[in-house]
Nucleic acid binder design. Structure first.
Lengths: 337, 337
DNA sequence: CTTGGCACTCGGGAACACAGAGTGCCAAGC
DNA sequence: GCTTGGCACTCTGTGTTCCCGAGTGCCAAG
């Protein structure tokens, strides 16, 4: 009984604070939510909640504000993800369906998410680690230059130019292409290095220089994994929100691939929406912000993550609903293509 | 004589205001620049300059601030582009040299420019309009799916998946690939539609369905020209600068491809640095900002543009120097690859 | 355990005064 | 005719003071 009401109070505080952006006091609470008790009672509860670290007051004699710990409790136990409206679902679907290639899918997704949540959206490109080789192509460009193209099952294309010591011999190239495709087709990207390690040895000696040149470029392109690239959109939404911490830090973090990666990155259960609140996140520059993220991917494998970043004071149920929905739709799109 | 000194005064005002960010008064001017005349004289000159619209005072009795017209005069007649230091040049060169493909070139360029100028950098992807076909590739993906890849002389790669009504026939695909390459190789992208218009008619009837399916995708990819894509970096640099206009507008504009395109886009002489100051630019949301841009491209053709966007109150000589230098280096890199 | 009453605290806004920077103008000097 | 020093005037920005109101904590009564 007692505890129940305290939780109700906490929930009310979070909801009011999120919607008004002002510290909420005991009187306002009893007026806006019918809790059936008087302000004085609320005050007692609030005193306890404060002692337990769920709420805080900015100054003596001002309303209360949820702490990170308070938001955490709210997210974990006091709220449920709010599904999108039918109209929103249709909009998502039709917007994403128009995508023409993987770049386009990512670009559209990030914009969509930003617009939907009115916050900064972050989308990680589908990781290669989990994908497999669909095709390898070798294209002669000029006498001593070859373009090497790797296509994965997610539709991602990596291309590199290979500089050769000798003139290109069409037949050798064709042969090597066949060999490469035969040994790599369907193979996971992570196991490619193993597969090709002894390949030059199995070829006739005159093919080896060509093969080693190509393989070194191939391996390099895998190592770089630049495709763990992250894009963001909706920075304009930061302008309205007043961050406790300067928004310079936030913008800086957004342009640091590495930081973003770590924010979204540490994966969890497939398809579950994870929330990281304020000081819970690993980067000190983002103390005042929360990250709501989810994994997406085609089939049963999680390929990458996406999410949004906003002030700690955000509408978690709605945001989580949007993130979850978009993650699902993107997964569908990817699986279909 | 008279006019000369007025110009010197204007230059001094611009320089001081840019460096201090405070309206500059007559007394401060005589102290910091040895103009050889007294504050009272300066005041007379300033009154004239104000009447002519080159400077303005924010409030009665405060220093003067350059107007857009004043900056314009400064840029056109009173300043010269400041070359970069040798160290900066080396840094640019080595940073760009590490680029591995066209995406990488663009990404590195935009970051470099942002860091160099401490402003928002904007880079347009090399336009297809000016580029030529280097190679067309057709890759069977599955029974009824084909990947179509177009490689241009700038190293840009467009890929699309083609859905087919019939099963893929390897021989037909090979034949069509040969035909396509024969007729398109080296052909400008803008003339591709003409070249392929009658192509199905010249093929044996059994090849036509395949050919038309592929061609429709090819044409579509050309029409979309999404590659007139624009990326930006350095948004964090906006946080420090205090814009007269809200920075929300600026961030919004940055995410609108179309707006950015128009800002950089209207081309001018190759390799000249163009400056658009405050209200001169076509987009009302960006009244308080200036754009310094230049074209870049390999060889003698201008492929695209790059530049930076910052507050009207910027150090034009330095910024112009940086933009010019980066444009040149990128052109070199592109020409070499 | 809840509730009304009450004294206390403190932030934020309004009113006000003041110093300082800067201007415009005028009359004198070169 | 341009330049210069002097002088009165006009503002903005800042610091001070004061007061109101929202909100709290505590206490004693129900």
């Amino acid at each position: 009984m007692v505890d129940d009401r305290k939780l109700a109070v906490l929930r009310a505080i979070v909801e009011d604070y999120v919607s008004t952006n002002e510290p909420v006091g005991s009187k306002a609470l009893t007026e806006r939510h019918n809790l059936g008790v008087s302000p004085a009672t609320i005050r007692n509860d609030m005193a306890v909640l404060e002692e337990q670290g769920y709420i805080a007051q900015p100054h003596t004699s001002a309303g209360r504000v949820p702490t990170d710990k308070g938001y955490r409790l709210f997210v974990d136990r006091l709220s449920q993800v709010k599904p999108l409206s039918a109209a929103e679902r249709r909009a998502i679907e039709s917007f994403l369906a128009g995508a023409v290639d993987i770049d386009d899918v990512v670009t559209r997704t990030v914009r969509l998410l930003a617009q939907l949540t009115r916050q900064v959206a972050v989308v990680q490109y589908p990781t290669m680690s989990n994908s497999t080789v669909r095709h390898v192509e070798l294209v002669p460009l000029s006498e001593r230059r070859l373009m090497f193209v790797l296509i994965t099952n997610t539709g991602r294309v990596e291309q590199r130019v290979v500089e050769l010591a000798d003139l290109v011999d069409e037949n050798r190239v064709a042969h090597l292409r066949a060999v490469l495709n035969a040994s790599l087709d369907g193979c996971g990207l992570t196991s490619v290095p193993d597969k090709v390690a002894d390949l030059p040895g199995r070829l006739p000696p005159e093919d080896r220089p060509l093969a080693t040149a190509i393989l070194s470029v191939l391996l390099e392109s895998l190592v770089e994994r630049r495709d763990e690239k992250i894009v963001f959109a909706g920075a304009a939404n930061l302008a309205g929100a007043d961050f406790t911490v300067g928004l310079r830090e936030v913008l800086e973090a957004l342009e640091e691939q590495v930081v973003l990666m770590r924010l979204l990155g540490e994966t969890s259960d497939r398809s579950a929406v994870t929330v990281r609140i304020g000081s819970e996140n690993p980067y000190t520059g983002l103390k005042g912000t929360s990250i709501v993220a989810a994994g997406y991917g085609s089939g049963d494998k999680q390929l990458a993550r996406l999410g949004v970043l906003g002030p700690t004071r955000m509408d978690y149920p709605v945001t989580m609903g949007a993130v979850r929905a978009v993650a699902r739709y993107v997964s569908q799109i990817l699986a279909a293509s």
